[in-house]
């Protein structure tokens, strides 16, 4: 079985299931909308301090709704023992991981595509006014989904999975979250793009290193 075909089959299956149930995407969108609306109450109209914190609010909405979506997407693999069946199939086990990861990444990018215009409405800020923000959003979401998928696969078989996932994931994600917030603020605030350069490099390095590590050792991790 071709590695890429296996990844594609899993993504196709997840997209079809999500298209029918809309469970993960709807949960993420509703949660992200709530965060966006509630945090918008803290600013006076025309507040000058707003631009300094909007990036943080955006990433809070993304991270916490993403946690919700990751949990939902893994539940379908636990119900009916499907994860076991996937691991029984004659494909490299990392293909199963990358299939699930790409599905989660697609769902999160879709949620972010809806969230960005909402921020323009509620905060009068165009987050993607500078194209490099799109790169930051993609790289940080990639890193978040990468480790989020790994930890949700590990924690999904535990009774306390709702707690275990953020407990395991968020400490490891600190460099990515910090980098994403600070570099987003740089672009929103109209500061020189060089100020965000180191953060973008850090997030990209994080993504590359963990992609390679997971590709190499996922089989061992999941068996244990």
């Amino acid at each position: 079985m071709n590695y890429l075909m296996a990844v594609f089959s899993i993504v196709k299956k997840d997209v079809l299931m999500e298209w029918r149930s809309k469970e993960a995407v709807n949960s993420m969108l509703v949660f992200a909308l709530l965060v966006t609306v509630v945090f918008s109450f803290i600013f006076e109209p025309g507040s000058e301090t707003k631009n300094e914190v909007v990036g943080g609010i955006f990433w809070i909405a993304v991270i916490f709704s993403g946690l919700l979506g990751l949990g939902k997407s893994m539940v379908s693999e636990v119900q009916g023992g499907n994860l076991e069946a996937l691991l029984l199939s004659p494909v490299d086990r990392s293909a199963v991981f990358f299939g699930k990861f790409l599905s989660n990444l697609l769902f999160m990018l879709f949620m972010e595509a809806v969230l960005v215009p909402l921020f323009t409405v509620f905060y009068d800020v165009n987050i993607v006014a500078r194209p490099k923000v799109i790169l930051v959003i993609f790289l940080a979401t990639y890193g978040f989904c990468l480790l989020g998928t790994l930890f949700s696969l590990i924690s999904v078989r535990t009774k306390t999975r709702e707690i275990m996932l953020p407990l395991m994931l968020l400490p490891v994600m600190v460099p990515v979250i910090l980098g994403a917030i600070l570099s987003t603020n740089v672009f929103i605030g109209g500061f020189p793009a060089e100020n965000a350069g180191n953060w973008i490099t850090l997030i990209a390095s994080f993504d590359v290193v963990f992609t390679a590590v997971i590709f190499a050792i996922f089989g061992l991790i999941i068996e244990e």
Binding site: K13, M17, S21, S76, G80, E84, L86
Partner: peptide
């Protein structure tokens, strides 16, 4: 290997045929 377990190993939101086609794709 073919495994029949306590659990059905099928996805609730897919039809019987779609489930089988999905696993068929993984097994080539």
């Amino acid at each position: 290997f073919g495994v029949i377990s306590h659990q059905p190993f099928v996805y609730d939101n897919l039809s019987a045929k779609e489930n089988l086609e999905f696993y068929a794709s993984l097994y080539g």
